[in-house]
């Protein structure tokens, strides 16, 4: 669905952000794009969506070269940015003006999503809403577009506690085998049971791009109660009341639940070993 080859990009020549970066994303997954602040997550999303131009290499989204911004790509793609542009319009007028760009936009879904967020009055002006409310409208719009590629940058920022749960519910409704959903987030706990593939970006490189099943096969996440895990196999550990919580090489092929925060720390700790494990 999305292919990046030998991407080079930097906002200044002295400081390149990406150097020879490769990445491939397939449909049927909800990708979590993770990385520390300033590693270029948003820039990478802008390049995929044709908002920033690569200085070298190739980027194609649904077989369209992204920098050309062809209509065929744009009508099949929705990018929900972190900072949203809000025109002075009522919800219903915003939809009237923007929905025609997306051929699979579904009004029933949009209304249903809005009412799940308790926002039923489409005569309200977007500009008179709180940040969280604006964000909810944009999330509903983004999901109702039913584009094969959906990209969201920090979608849960600004949402209150019940709204985060609603967001997960509607995302679970909207996800299907035909869609490629990419979510950049620092709030991993908000989305950990929905993300089924993880991309970790660090210093201009992709340190990990793997689905959760593969991760669960290769790595073991558990409380090391009896201290029976070989120290050499431990990639990361953290103290807890029950004992050390560890991420280790899964030699015994045990099934455990992937904890994305622990995974992130393990990858930061041992990028080399992770690379060997996943590319062996």
């Amino acid at each position: 669905m999305i292919t990046i080859k030998n991407l080079t990009f930097g906002y200044s020549k002295q400081k390149m952000l990406f150097n020879d970066l490769d990445l491939g994303l397939q449909e049927g997954h909800i990708y979590g794009l993770l990385g520390k602040n300033g590693t270029g997550k948003t820039t990478l999303l802008k390049i995929i969506t044709g908002l920033c131009f690569p200085q070298g290499g190739e980027v194609s989204t649904m077989d369209y070269p992204a920098p050309l911004r062809q209509a065929g790509m744009l009508e099949n793609l929705f990018f929900l940015t972190e900072e949203i542009f809000i025109p002075h319009l009522k919800i219903k007028d915003y939809v009237k003006a923007n929905a025609p760009f997306y051929k699979h936009f579904n009004h029933e879904q949009f209304n249903e999503y809005l009412s799940l967020f308790d926002m039923d009055n489409q005569n309200d002006y977007l500009t008179k809403m709180s940040l969280g409310q604006k964000k909810k409208v944009m999330i509903c719009f983004a999901l109702a577009c039913n584009t094969p590629v959906l990209i969201m940058d920090e979608p849960t920022n600004g949402l209150d506690i019940p709204s985060k749960s609603t967001f997960r519910k509607i995302l679970a409704m909207a996800a299907d085998e035909g869609k490629t959903i990419v979510i950049s987030t620092h709030q991993v706990r908000d989305l950990h049971s929905l993300i089924d593939a993880v991309i970790i970006l660090e210093q201009g490189k992709i340190l990990l791009n793997a689905d959760i099943d593969t991760i669960a096969r290769q790595l073991l996440f558990k409380v090391n109660e009896d201290n029976n895990i070989d120290e050499a196999d431990i990639l990361y550990k953290e103290e807890s009341l029950k004992g050390d919580v560890v991420v280790a090489i899964n030699k015994e092929h045990q099934e455990s639940k992937v904890d994305i925060e622990l995974l992130f720390n393990a990858v930061m700790n041992h990028p080399q070993k992770i690379n060997e494990i996943f590319h062996a």
Binding site: G28, I30, S165, R168, K169, I170, A172, M173, A175, D176, S193, L194, I195, D196
Partner: peptide, 14 residues
């Protein structure tokens, strides 16, 4: 699948 995924807030594939 979709109803339960939405109820439990998990990925439908799970």
């Amino acid at each position: 699948l979709r109803e339960l995924a939405s109820k439990l807030e998990v990925n439908p594939a799970t």
